[in-house]
Each structure stands twice: as C-alpha cells, then as structure tokens.
Design a protein around this nucleic acid. Structure first.
Lengths: 213, 213
DNA sequence: TTGGATGGGTAACTCAAGTTACACGCAATT
DNA sequence: AATTGCGTGTAACTTGAGTTACCCATCCAA
C-alpha cells in the first residue's frame, strides 16, 4: 500500500501525513460494477483513489439514475467529506467504473488532519473545488445541451477515464447514465454511426477520431 | 459593522476571529439588482452575507442564464472560495436579489484563518457542503422535473428568500432564471392561476397557500 | 397627446425526446 | 434443437416545450 500511496499522493502530501495514512488507512480493491456507496447510507470512512475510476450517480424519485461525474486517481469523494462532517446520509451512489484500488481513511482522522497538515487541508479544499466544477459541468450539459450532444460528450468522457476508444457497454446502460430511455439512445447512436463518428457493435461502441485509437 | 457581525456570525466564530474580521473586513451595502461578480472576473475578496440575499447564476454560450441557487444571511460564496484558492476566473454571476449587506474579506486572510481558527475551517467546509447540496438540488430540478414543477418550486424559493408571498418580478425575468422563454412562462403561470395556485398582476405575482400570506 | 418601451395573453406551428410496440439476432442453458 | 433472455433496430405515436407572430394594456417621456 505504501508504494501505491507514494505513487499517487507522494507529491501532494508531506511525509508525516503519508506515514499516518499508511498506518490508519486500509487498502481496498474492488471489481468493476462494485457498489461503493448507496443513497441513504451512513459513511464511516473516506476513500482516496489510487487507481481505476468511480462513477458518481444521482437518483430521482422513480429510481432512475443520472451520472454526475467520474472520479479518477488522486481524487476523493467530496460527497463523502460532506457526509462525514455532517453525519448525514449519502446523497449519491458510487459505483466502480472499472477494477479500482482505494485507500480508506477513518473519518475521525479527517478533522484531526485538517488542523494538523496544511497539505491535507489544501487537498480537501481542492477536492471540493473540483467537485463543484464537475457539478457545474454537469448542470451545463443537462440544461444547455441537446441529448445528442450530451451523448457524444458522455462517450468522450467515458473514453478518457477508460483510456480506451472501444467502450464495453450497452445502450441500456448509457440510457441509465443520461437519464433517458434505451430507444432514444439507440436512435441517436445510429445517427452518430451514420455520420461516421462511431461504429456500433454488440456490447461495445467504437468511437472514431480520438487520441485513444 | 461589529454589531452586524456579531448578529450574524457571533454564534459561529470565536471572539478573536470576529475581531480580526472587524479589522480587515470592509462593510458593503448594495442595492437590489447590483452585479457583485460576473463571469470571467478575478476575485480579490470574499463576501460574508449579513442581510439580504444573492442570486447565483450560470450562463450558456448564447448568453442565456440559469439560476443555480440563492445565498442568504450567514452564507458565503463557495465559488468565490474556489476562485480565490485557485486564482481562477469566476464561473458564475452573482446579483443582489434585494438590498443586501455584506462584509468583504481580503482573500489573503482566508488561507491564514483556515490554519488558525477551527471555527473558520468548519465554516468554510460547511459552506462548501451547503453549496454542493444546492447544486444537487439544482440538478434534480433541471433533470427530473417538468417546467411547470420547476416554476412552482422557483416561486416558493423566491418567497422564502424574500419573506413575502407577493413577488415583484416579471415573466421575462423568471424565464431568464429558468433558462426558458417568456411565452412558456406566461403559459404555465396562466395555468397555475387557473388552478388557483397563484394570482397574476402586472409586475407582481401573488402566491397563494404559503406561510407568508 | 402621441409614440415608444415594456409587460403580458394567446394561437399556431415545429421539434426534440419520451413511449409503445414489435421484430430479429446472438448467446447461454436445458 | 428448443427455450429463454438480452441487446439492438425501427416505426408510429404522443407530448412538453421552444418559436414566431400578433394582440392589447400600461406607463412614461418627448
């Protein structure tokens, strides 16, 4: 774990903090699709992402989902920070987008460290900042873009976190993430294919014209 | 200013911090409609709200707006926090919803105080928390509600911050805030009136069935 | 008092997106 | 080989909301 820690957070945290994390943190490895946090759950520890990616989702009253953003290496879950501090329930669902490695920090340490380590404080502030920016991005997409534009953006985000221009997913799952119906996604994907932006296959989508090809 | 400070933040901050704020902060009083921050501006000070309310907006590429949330007494602008720390430009526009009193803190103090005062740290964290929750609320509304529901919710939020069930506003302004067109708002308002939820007058809307009546 | 600006009402049309329904192929299981 | 479930394609219809156009009323300044 120490190696992973130094790899991902060595440049960010001072030595003493790295050591503390190494002592009180627990290493966790979860497979793709693993449900890390669900709505209404109380959170007892805070995740630091070492590798992989996490999908953060919101749910409406009918149980339909909406993707908020992805977390990647070096990120932490700001919503978790919130819940820890406020002792409130989780407002979001977090699912492993791929096989993912994390270090879990007991929440008691959080408060302690914010007083003790300047680098930790800055890290927490920066996490909040990043999450707010991602929420803004998300609002922009939902409020200002048409579904076809949102879809294309989604595909490119997904490529970025997966480092692979071939997305192993289904139309149904995309529809869940974008809070629409499968039929709509199939229709729009077909149009994108006709425009030469992507190629459709069973269970995967090849996105053309990206750096990952 | 000291009086206002103690009124709004006395229970929150320790004495020493209140005194520091009193020394370095500058009191500011702005009229309704005053543009406090605009997109792209660099921010040199951070506002603490003493009384009144502030409307925080996002803009799309065509220059159309979208209301994100309101700030009230005891709040601060988390987006400002962000911008101060990151030295980046403002991502939002902030407009006084009514005559508003603020205390402006030079941003250099922010960093200093987060190390020095626990109450300040908690205040900043809590502000971030509140803003994230409001962004979530905002996303819920945009993504999950129909325009008529969003409109009704908007009216009630507006009543809450104005402490008055008669809203002095125009259909056009509501349309801006909800990122739609005046015609759509007029249509929906008329339906609400026919359902007995509101009464329409020139330049003001009376919302029925609230505590403020 | 007249003309312009602003606020609001309403009809008619367009379009993006959601819904329903059904067809077909692929893959795993029996 | 037959069954079942899943992933996808597509047509036909519905609906919420954006657009255009034109109406009238109020208010204010020239």
């Amino acid at each position: 774990m120490l190696h992973d820690l130094q790899q991902s957070y060595g440049g960010l945290f001072e030595k003493a903090l790295i050591e503390e994390i190494n002592q009180v943190g627990t290493f966790k490895e979860v497979p793709e699709g693993f449900l890390l946090i669900d709505f209404g759950q109380y959170i007892r520890s805070m995740p630091l992402l070492v590798s992989g990616a996490i999908k953060v989702l919101r749910e409406d009253q009918q149980g339909n989902e909406l993707l908020l953003y992805f977390l990647e290496e070096g990120d932490t879950c700001a919503m978790t920070l919130n819940c820890c501090l406020g002792q409130t329930q989780s407002e979001i669902r977090a699912v492993a987008e791929m096989d993912t490695k994390l270090i879990m920090i007991p929440i008691q340490k959080m408060e302690e460290w914010t007083g003790k380590y300047r680098s930790w404080r800055n890290f927490v502030f920066e996490s909040y900042h990043n999450r707010l920016m991602e929420m803004l991005e998300s609002i922009d997409s939902i409020a200002f873009l048409r579904m076809d534009e949102r879809l294309l953006k989604y595909l490119h985000e997904k490529i970025a976190v997966n480092h692979n221009a071939i997305l192993h997913t289904t139309h149904k799952e995309i529809a869940y993430d974008l809070h629409t119906s499968r039929v709509v996604i199939s229709r729009l994907l077909k149009t994108l294919e006709n425009n030469g932006a992507i190629k459709l296959h069973r269970n995967n989508i090849e996105v053309l014209g990206t750096d990952q090809n």
